[in-house]
Amino acid sequence: MNGQIVIDGMTSGAMIGLGAIGVTLTYGLLRFANFAHGEFATWGAYIALVLASLLGTLLGGADGTIGDLTFGWHLLVALAGSMVLTALLALALDSVLFRRLRRHGSGMVLVIASFGASLALRSLLEFGFTGQPQYYSREIAMTVAIAPGMRATLDQLVVLGVAVALMAGTHLMLTHTALGRAMRATSENPDLARLAGIDVADVVRTTWLLGGAMAAAAGVFLGVTVQLRPTMGFELLLPLFAAAILGGIGSVPGAMAGGMIIGIAEAAAVPIAGAQYRAAVAFVVLLVVLLIKPTGLFGARER
């Protein structure tokens, strides 16, 4: 395998990993596969687009660029804003839809509802922005040679670095803070968590906020390195599920590792099967995992 595949695969793998954090946490806690999670990435990307252009209008003048990157600090501010707003979007979707259904319906009804929410959210963006691709910047991305035969754009390297830092931060939060412990405890045994004084509704809210924010970052990074389209998150959905299941449901390090593996597998498959079949790679990986080890790499349990 050549180095170029590794670096390209890792960049998209980092974005898959970021998105998969939310999938694996909500799945582990609420026990349902959220088909609307990809839309958080899409909404995150478009919210950042709007915020960045708002900043440009408010402050007058276009955004400069930072060094040889294609974007400037407007986009960084927009990224932060979009993570907050998308987190709130995830929370809102839970409180208008999923929370009510959890009270009455069976687990699978949640999956149907999330499928419906996914199409509605995506189509709403198509309504607002049309299906045409959009870009944060018209600058040409500079590439640098990292090693012989291995080139990456500066954007890619920054995105990779920030994504890995966000994932590591999430992992440290879960393992080293009281809130993180409460989240792991609740996901393992909600009744016992209540008995231990944990407010489960609080944990559920935190999980949505965290998952939404990470998905938004994934969406913005996808927009920086590729482009923005209303279907971008939906197309990410299968890799997200594959990464979460490959890593083991509920495991954040698993989601990161799973994301990297899927990303690299996709990049490696392109020269063999052609770029048009890229999206099927995640499906093949998923099938193999389900057949061989459905609990995934880091999964302790199948529930």
Binding site: F35, Q276, P294
Partner: peptide, 24 residues
């Protein structure tokens, strides 16, 4: 045969992936 012995929503994810792959 591949997924029905697993938890219910794995079937959902697998059928979703199968449909997307068939579309490709």
């Amino acid at each position: 045969a591949a997924t029905l012995r697993l938890r219910a929503d794995y079937l959902a994810i697998t059928t979703f992936g199968a449909a997307i792959s068939l579309e490709l």
